[in-house]
Design a protein around this nucleic acid. Structure first.
Lengths: 137, 137
DNA sequence: ATGTGTGCAAACGCTTTGCAATTTG
DNA sequence: CAAATTGCAAAGCGTTTGCACACAT
């Protein structure tokens, strides 16, 4: 999250609380996670504000929206390009900083203007391996 | 979609209609897309049946669920490992058959049992480039 | 008869929206 | 003060669920 450079938005208390929740947060929280976390110290916080703020931060390039979790959007305050590893059971997401060479042949570009790419790895995390209660579903 | 091998499920008319909709379908349809398409020829089709059938087909390895589209799950009857290219405006998805070397260093595996990976490319498709009505949002 | 699949409608979770009241620069 | 932001509640959309009915072996 680029907090060192000036982000040109009005800094309301609500936004500051959301930013504070995001700085250094490597849990890839959903909007709901953020709402719950911020609500504790800020009981008037509303979902609308969380979603509005996330949208603004996305536009400013301060956070990135992930679609690795099929159930909901999750947000990453780390804007350094990197990839992710998802546990299919508990949905924890780990960061992957390995660099891959992902060059498309011209025929596979389909004349798109390619903006970016993202590698998702899927697996089972050490905590979920062997935990009987997680084996079904 | 592996229709050449026997898939061990009861082939009801509803399931056949859904399979027929999926065979050779490269549009990566959502459940709703499939429902709409099948409903035309099968007016008693219900959402429940579409979702139930997709779940069954997923378990049998006949279709793959994609999470590249942040708005909804989409389904791919092509089970040959491949990657995808999404247009951020119209959400069309193209298949990418390029092979990439995606080896994780041990430290980046976080002790996960890694099951698979998927490369998502993002961009703007030729149809959406320069279409004024798509430029905002 | 037993188990499996279907269809409907309700419910659910995540996300968006409209709008009046408030706050910010 | 003008413009932007907030909070609330309702609505929207994709998805899941419970249950009665139908079907197949």
């Amino acid at each position: 999250m680029k907090l060192d450079r000036r982000i040109d938005i009005k800094l309301t208390p609500q936004r500051l609380a959301i930013l504070e929740c995001l700085v250094g947060n490597t849990s890839h929280p959903s909007a709901s996670d953020i709402y719950k976390s911020v609500f504790e110290k800020f009981p008037t916080m509303s979902f609308a504000t969380v979603y509005n703020t996330l949208e603004t931060l996305k536009e400013k390039g301060v956070v990135v929206e992930l679609s690795i979790d099929p159930d909901k959007k999750r947000f990453d305050p780390n804007t350094i390009p990197h990839h992710h590893l998802l546990c299919l059971r508990c949905k924890i997401i780990k960061d992957i900083f390995e660099k891959f060479s992902l060059v498309l042949s011209e025929s596979e570009e389909y004349n798109f203007d390619i903006i970016g790419n993202h590698v998702d790895f899927y697996g089972i995390c050490p905590q979920c391996k062997g935990v009987e209660s997680n084996k079904h579903k």
